[in-house]
Amino acid sequence: MHALFAHLHYYAAVLIMLAGLYTVIAHGNLVRKLIGMSIFQSSVFILYISMGYRFGGSAPILQEGVSTYASPLPHVLILTAIVVGISTTALGLALLRLIHQAYGSVEESSIEASETHQ
């Protein structure tokens, strides 16, 4: 029981991860695929951030009377990954606009239909 609670954040991260991955694979709508991809990335952010947490730890700022701190390093790492994630999503949205201009749709089925029609 204790193990379950101690690792609760990991289970949460895995659940979100699977939800994102499923959305990417199962949906034919390209916007949904992009959303699924973002969710998938966010789950890894949670994995990292929760990894740095210590029970009873305080924020990693030196202060009187505190001896346990959360580890700041995973947070700093994931800050970089969040920036990467934002750029990826922005680029994906820009590409979707171009796709919509070219095909008039962001549904995979109708894009494929118009490809074979040509």
Binding site: L34, M37, L96, Y103, I111, E115
Partner: peptide
């Protein structure tokens, strides 16, 4: 015409 589509699929696969 299909270049953005190829790039988008590359983006999704590459990001995963």
């Amino acid at each position: 015409r299909a270049a953005p589509l190829a790039a988008f699929r590359y983006l999704v696969a590459g990001t995963l």
